[in-house]
Amino acid sequence: MVKFDILKHELVPKFTILSKEEVEALRQTYGIRKEHLPWIRKSDPICKVLGAKPGDVLKIERNSEVAGKSIAYRYVVPG
């Protein structure tokens, strides 16, 4: 029996938690605050698996049909 790993499901893209420096660099390039990014809730199953806390920023590598690979970010919020 295949063990279920939520991160390996075909609908779930690759997630990584950004380090403080990376978040700062991201803020600088786009000239935004973290809250301006799309959000993800702390209660989201992905956040639970990764152990992401409110205030973290997740990097998402999506497989886009339009662009091949596309990179997005989500800001972890409480709730």
Binding site: P13, F15, P45, I46
Partner: peptide, 11 residues
């Protein structure tokens, strides 16, 4: 609920 908001987006 089960796979998270990103999976819901793709769905």
């Amino acid at each position: 609920e089960v796979l998270g908001i990103e999976a819901a987006r793709s769905a």
